[in-house]
């Protein structure tokens, strides 16, 4: 399995955020997207997930276990927001996502209890999500990555608001995912605690933005 991005450019509103970004990642590899605030890390990840239309360029997932039209179908996206309902219990949230996501061909997600145990919060899955602290909520959002199998993880600032122990736990999750042949793409300021990662440094597009007007 290979993820190939070619000549990506993206625009937000009238502003060109970045242009001509190409990279290639194979299964079992991770890509760390680095750069200052506003350099377009989040925008790049949203383009990869298919949530934002690219101005130019293509993203393809080659030799995947099932043909995909958009990379988003084969990917988990962990954005700034946790995508969990405060009114529902953690278990209800995760059960819903597990059923709604379904597994991508070639893997299977773990059950909800196991996922909650893996992120180190076993025993509080029956609480409403809104009762948890910010750090716990973030961990539960990570448990969402485990309940359904997706070969590609797209992670936007995954460890913001987490303490060192949780960061280490998350590094373990990513390592395990890579060892199953998965791909991870993470935008972050902090070192993820992973060794031997490839890096993509976003500089931000500083030239004059072309505009149709």
């Amino acid at each position: 399995m290979r993820l190939v991005a070619e000549g990506l450019s993206a625009r937000r509103g009238e502003d060109l955020i970045f242009r001509d970004i190409s990279f290639e990642i194979a299964g079992g590899e991770a890509l760390l997207v680095k750069g200052a605030n506003g350099s377009g890390k989040s925008t790049l990840l949203r383009v990869l997930a298919g949530l934002l239309a690219a101005e130019a360029g293509t993203v393809r997932l080659l030799a995947a276990t099932q043909p995909v039209e958009r990379l988003g179908e084969a990917a988990h996206y962990l954005g700034h927001r946790n995508a969990m309902k405060r009114e529902l219990t953690v278990e209800e949230n995760l059960t819903f996502w597990k059923a709604f996501f379904g597994d991508f061909a070639g893997g299977a997600g773990v059950c909800v209890d196991e996922a909650v145990d893996t992120v180190g919060l076993g025993g509080i899955a029956h609480l409403p999500f809104g009762y948890l602290s910010a750090g716990q909520q973030r961990r539960m959002a990570m448990a969402k990555l485990l309940v359904a199998w997706r070969p590609v993880w797209i992670l936007d600032e995954p460890t913001a608001a987490l303490d060192v122990a949780a960061e280490r736990m998350f590094a373990g999750l990513v390592t395990a995912h890579l060892s199953r042949g998965g791909i991870a793409i993470a935008a972050t300021h902090q070192p993820l605690g992973l060794e031997g990662l490839r890096e993509l440094r976003m500089t931000g597009f500083t030239g004059a933005a072309e505009t149709v007007w």
Binding site: A49, E73, A75, G79, H80, M84, K85, R86, F101
Partner: peptide, 14 residues
């Protein structure tokens, strides 16, 4: 949209 669920709903094959 506010809690980010919309992104995930949009990404699926469904």
């Amino acid at each position: 949209r506010e809690d980010g669920s919309l992104d995930l709903l949009l990404m699926q094959e469904t």
